[in-house]
């Protein structure tokens, strides 16, 4: 191999900030005492079942899907708040799957998570200055006056102005939107490279959503942040993402860049989801694909294609053989038997 191609490959590798391979996360199901006596085998909730994707530096990668499809679990496993059952996670090319202790703490400076519920993600007994400045103290970066200065700076950045008015308040004195800004401030104060945003706007007043999303987009430029954005709201996904992966029952069913995925959805599930997005024009006629039934339980996953019980186009093959994620167009992956 020539030096040039070697270099090219290395550059390509480096630009991949996060990569997961065959990621699985199963939660054992608690059984009652009697059941434990009579059955040996454990049953599992297969929250994430063999997922693979990679996120390039500076990109906004969205995981979308109905609730219970495993998107949140995927995010938490990637930032190492949950241990994966199997599979590999790479961060900047290094395997972080088994990272523990001090090395994991150092890694946390570079990857952060922001949670869905701003009412639960802040310690009710910590003032804003301590909540936002705590990451600095934990990593020994700043204390006292210096901490205060940095906290003021970052509060200003997230739009809590004037910041002096906020630092001595407790979370219960703030509104939901303000709390989410505080949570955002806490996660960017360490200047991370990568952030998992777990439905950051779904619990916020609709009128404030776009301002918080715009704030997050501005950090992408300013701090060079890469996002893994988790949402069930396809309108939000359409607004912010570069790449989207649609998940169903712990698996990615379709993945690709935003435009091809929205203009030409290929998986029946994606088509159904997209047809459910409300259109602001009442004159425009649209075909709604309605899915039959409910999402099956993640404990008893259907055989073959896990979407087949609800799929309008199912064939015999669908209930027997599990479709693989294949590249249908360049950069557009679909897991469906109809594609062959």
């Amino acid at each position: 191999m020539s030096d040039a191609s070697c270099m090219a490959k290395k550059v390509f590798m480096l630009s991949e900030i996060v990569k997961v391979e065959h990621l699985k996360k199963y939660f054992p199901v608690q059984k009652s005492f009697l059941e434990q006596l009579f059955t040996r085998e454990l049953s599992y909730v297969k929250a994430v079942d063999d997922v693979a994707f990679s996120i390039r530096s500076g990109e906004i990668f969205t995981l979308a899907g109905e609730s219970g499809c495993g998107k949140t679990t995927t995010g938490r496993v990637i930032v190492k708040l949950l241990e994966p059952t199997s599979g590999k996670i790479y961060f900047n090319g290094a395997d972080i799957t088994k990272l523990k202790g001090e090395k994991l703490r150092l890694l946390r400076r570079k990857m952060q998570i922001i949670f869905q519920d701003p009412y639960a993600s802040l310690n009710p007994r910590m003032k804003i200055i301590d909540a936002v400045g705590h990451p600095l103290e934990i990593h020994g970066l700043a204390k006292g006056e210096e901490k205060k200065k940095k906290v003021l700076e970052v509060l200003e950045k997230v739009g809590l102005t004037p910041p002096e008015q906020f630092i001595n308040l407790y979370p219960h004195q703030l509104s939901g939107g303000q709390r989410q800004r505080v949570a955002l401030a806490r996660s960017i104060i360490l200047k991370p490279e990568f952030m998992v945003a777990d439905e950051p706007v779904s619990m916020i007043d609709v009128s404030l959503r776009s301002s918080i999303i715009d704030l997050m987009l501005s950090f992408r430029k300013e701090l060079g942040l890469t996002y893994l954005f988790i949402t069930h709201d396809l309108a939000v996904a359409k607004y912010i993402s570069d790449k989207i992966a649609i998940m169903y029952l712990g698996k990615i069913v379709e993945m690709g860049h935003k435009e091809p995925l929205f203009w030409n959805p290929m998986h029946p599930y994606t088509q159904a989801l997209l047809s459910a997005i409300p259109v602001p024009n009442p004159e425009r006629e649209r075909k709604r694909i309605e899915l039959a039934g409910e999402v099956p339980s993640a404990i008893d996953i259907p055989t073959g294609c896990r979407f087949h019980p609800r799929c309008p186009y199912r064939t015999d093959k669908c209930s027997k053989e599990e479709p693989q994620l294949i590249e249908v167009e360049k950069g557009h992956f679909v897991a469906c038997h109809l594609m062959k």
Partner: peptide
């Protein structure tokens, strides 16, 4: 969640 968040910032 706030305990999880504390783990997330490396406490």
């Amino acid at each position: 969640t706030y305990v999880e968040a504390a783990r997330g910032i490396g406490a």
